[in-house]
């Protein structure tokens, strides 16, 4: 299990109703069903990932997040989750608004483009960062809207989104420094939001 998935489940209540946007192979959703007995739906557009969700017996719905969540009623879910997909959306700010309309609370995770390695890469090589975590070239990356932790928090303030809590998790390095200077040493952020 990816490290951020393990942290997420701490914020999910037993028997709650969960919508997972960009649910991938359904690992998180399956984990939440098994451990928190949630009633969950996952949205996904990748055919191979959808098959993996079906194999796990999950409720997976083929839906493109860029078309919005207009088909889901206000506050119809306890928690709407989106892990590592924010940066792939055409309109991340609008999807964020939609998540907070559909869910009572939201959990969002994304990679920190302000991590020192990305900054160092761009500063020294003058080229867009390519790393283990972000292995794509600029022209073929699905990650089209990168932000730093700071950028995200500015967006939250602008849109009156309440940050209930924030956690920074590192898989690769900087375990000690990430809490001291998260925007420089944090790799992935998990934001727990409400409106």
């Amino acid at each position: 299990m990816r490290i951020d998935l393990n942290e997420i489940q701490l914020w999910i209540k037993q028997n709650s109703r969960v919508l997972d946007l960009g649910c991938g192979d359904g690992t998180l959703l399956k984990f939440l069903i098994d451990n928190k007995q949630v009633q969950g739906y996952g949205l996904e557009i990748d055919a191979a990932q959808i098959n993996l969700c079906i194999n796990k017996g999950l409720n997976v719905i083929e839906q493109n997040l860029d078309r919005g969540l207009g088909n889901f009623a206000d506050k119809s879910f306890d928690t709407v989750i989106m892990t590592q997909a924010l940066q792939t959306l055409h309109f991340p700010h609008l999807v964020l608004d939609e998540m907070l309309r559909v869910g009572k609370e939201c959990i969002v995770t994304f990679p920190n483009f302000g991590h020192w390695k990305a900054r160092f890469y761009l500063a020294t090589r003058g080229r867009m960062p390519v790393s283990d975590l972000l292995p794509f070239e600029w022209y073929n990356t699905p990650n089209i809207h990168f932000c730093t932790f700071k950028d995200f928090e500015v967006l939250c303030r602008e849109r009156n989104i309440k940050v209930i809590s924030r956690q920074v998790v590192n898989e690769v390095s900087g375990q000690a420094l990430k809490d001291l200077m998260p925007n420089l040493f944090g790799e992935t952020a998990i934001y727990h939001l409400s409106k």
Partner: peptide, 11 residues
């Protein structure tokens, strides 16, 4: 989904 029923959908 509105009725809270189990559903899988593929297009």
């Amino acid at each position: 989904v509105g009725a809270n029923r189990a559903v899988t959908y593929a297009e």
